[in-house]
Design a protein around this nucleic acid. Structure first.
Lengths: 249, 249
DNA sequence: TGACCCGACATATCTATACATGTCTAGTTG
DNA sequence: CAACTAGACATGTATAGATATGTCGGGTCA
């Protein structure tokens, strides 16, 4: 049995690009899994068997199976066989967009105001957070991001000088969240925590809130070389900002 | 010039699996891009040129380039060539974990309490949200999720009966956020919005908060067939819950 | 009995070749 | 000069065959 007629098959509808054969093989396998004919954990026919079954070459079958492996549909073990994988459990993701991109893509003007920009000595809490001795030097900044003339976000950052030597002279109108890190210092791990807080008087003033309202706060820690090199606390104007995630399974 | 010696090359270190040739080709290309020898937008040597340059077959080069395309390192256009792609801009993602899984994986006991479970008639706002006529039937539930004996989340959901016919008799101790949808109704699109709010008296009572505090609120809308079929509003106990994301680039 | 080896079989990779399809250019033709 | 066309060249797909490597079971032998 073959799923595919000969190479010289006339195209039924010239305007429709015929599906490539390896795609047809993928569809064949996925269909059989979806109907339950091949259940989770079952072993699929071997490549050679599929070659006989479908009338295509082994490389074509192999490509189909390799892509299905990448898609998480099957798992393969050399010398053993190919098996129907556990259905991937859906992970729902929220995209943390850069505030500047967000403002610009909504058709507004993005500006920043530097409130504080200095080098400090770490107190014991900061030293602990950065895995350094108390008294270690850290760069520190407080910046307000505006949408047109409305403050949307206050960001406070602490940065290890070693990985951002020219932090104090950077162009803070740039958007990228890791703009300050030198090129060698590629982040190895980034941790985000999102809270809801009621801001204190300083942040209320910076966000021009007449009275405190619930605000989103994002804490980001960036690791390089097993150490925290940047810690940022981003407080968003409560009723004016939300995180949005939109995805298609 | 070849990057690869003959097939019968003796393995220098038998315990180290030699890298496959298509992997070596990928590394060769990536290295040249990373050093800037091939800059963004530059055209790479054609497959045939790489064959000559590297001493491997075209299929091997092709596989390397196909995988680099999937990785977003290069872009290809049939009949034109292969080009160094824009470096993918980092998107930072926050995983929205299921509350029940979260509680259990932290070693606590997860229980739920059904506060409300009924069928209602949509008012004009709800009808608008679900793309239906006012007066349409909707299932409605309010459920509190507890970590041990502490309320962590209040969820309120509205569900289109057509896609969740047995919603009212479901097992609400199950965790999956789309447990209620029938198997045919695979979500096409899911939208999440995260706010910070100050909860009203009802939610404060359900979360056993003595006085209002800033809380995270997650709104989720699920589309099937171009229509909203489920809308949920999840309010998390303010100081007791945060979203955490941790990832390696 | 247990350690070892070997063969059957599975996936993984690589090659050489062929043909299909998309793009662009230079030249031709009206 | 514009429109068409042939050809060069790029990627995309498919094939058959060979080799490499991992797994497992059964047979052999001390």
């Amino acid at each position: 049995m073959t799923i595919i007629s000969g190479r010289d098959r006339p195209a039924a509808r010239p305007e429709v690009r015929p599906e490539a054969r390896y795609e047809q093989v993928k569809s064949y396998i996925v269909a059989r899994i979806e109907t339950g004919e091949w259940a989770v954990g079952d072993r699929l026919p071997s490549e050679s068997e599929l070659v006989e079954l479908l009338g295509v070459s082994r490389m074509t079958v192999h490509r189909a199976l390799r892509e299905l492996t990448a898609d998480g549909v099957v798992t393969r073990a050399q010398g053993v066989g190919t098996f129907v994988a556990e259905p991937a459990q859906r992970v729902e993701l929220l995209e943390l967009r850069d505030i500047a991109e967000d403002i610009v893509s909504n058709g507004h003007k993005h500006t920043t105001r530097i409130v504080t920009l200095d080098a400090i000595r770490a107190d014991s809490d900061l030293a602990m957070a950065f895995g350094q001795r108390p008294g270690a030097r850290l760069y520190h900044s407080i910046i307000v991001h505006y949408e047109d003339d409305t403050p949307l976000q206050v960001e406070e950052r602490f940065v290890s000088p070693h990985f951002a030597p020219d932090y104090l002279t950077q162009d803070f109108t740039l958007a990228h969240p890791h703009r300050h890190l030198s090129a060698i210092a590629q982040p190895e791990e980034i941790e985000h925590v999102v809270f809801a807080i009621t801001p204190g008087v300083e942040i209320c003033a910076l966000l021009e809130l007449d009275e405190p309202e619930a605000c989103l706060q994002l804490m980001r820690r960036t690791w390089v070389g097993g150490r925290v090199v940047m810690k940022g606390i981003f407080t968003y104007s409560g009723s004016r900002y939300s995180f949005v995630g939109r995805y298609r399974p």
